[in-house]
Amino acid sequence: MSSSSVTPWYKQFWPWFLLGLLFSSIAFSLLFLFFSIRYYDGSISGDYYERGLGINEQLAKQEHANELGLSATLKVDNVTGDVVINLAGERRPETLHLALIFPTDGDFDRELTLTHVREGRYVGTIEEPLQYRWYLQLQPEAGDAAEWRLTGEARFPSEDEANLVPGI
């Protein structure tokens, strides 16, 4: 008879290795669950098909803005919160609607109504200073009923003017 003794299971490598894999998968699953709840980005809207079909309407608005010869420049003063738009072209409505769209989080999106002060100049005020990159949409009224739309992109804070032109 040999006097070799069998070591207990808890002193061997493989049970701890397999338990380590199990516990690490549980830990990572809980971590991913936490992040998915904390940074929930919303679900697909119920009318996504209709919105997809509406792209032709958006293109028509931008084409109409091009036919009217519209373009604009946007200047934001982050210290005072003043937003100034100079609109060039045939149309000069009494108010303009500016949508500031944050690329990664819809909770940061802002909308602003600007009033006409003189020859194509519109002024409004924004409460909080802008930072980072934003998509800009300018139209004569809020919503999908607007007759034309100008789009652009800007990074804030900046001393430069942002250009808004017809087009996607």
Rank of each mutant, 00 (worst) to 15 (best):
K11C: 09
D47Y: 08
L22N: 05
E161Q: 12
V123H: 08
I85E: 02
E127R: 09
H116V: 07
P129D: 00
E159W: 03
S45K: 10
D82M: 07
T95E: 11
R110G: 02
L33V: 09
G89E: 06
L164K: 00
G106D: 11
R110F: 02
Y49W: 12
G143I: 08
G143T: 04
L87E: 08
T73R: 05
T73F: 02
S45R: 14
T80N: 01
L150C: 07
A154V: 02
L30C: 12
G124Q: 02
G143A: 07
A72V: 00
G69E: 06
Y39C: 02
W134C: 00
L114G: 02
A146S: 14
R38K: 10
E128R: 13
F13A: 10
A154I: 01
S25R: 04
I126N: 01
T7E: 15
G120W: 07
P93W: 03
L19F: 11
S5K: 10
I101E: 09
D41K: 14
S5W: 07
R91Q: 15
A88P: 02
D41V: 08
E63S: 12
R51E: 11
Q62N: 14
L74G: 01
R121F: 08
S4D: 13
A27G: 14
L19D: 04
N66P: 03
I85R: 01
L150G: 04
H97K: 05
E141K: 12
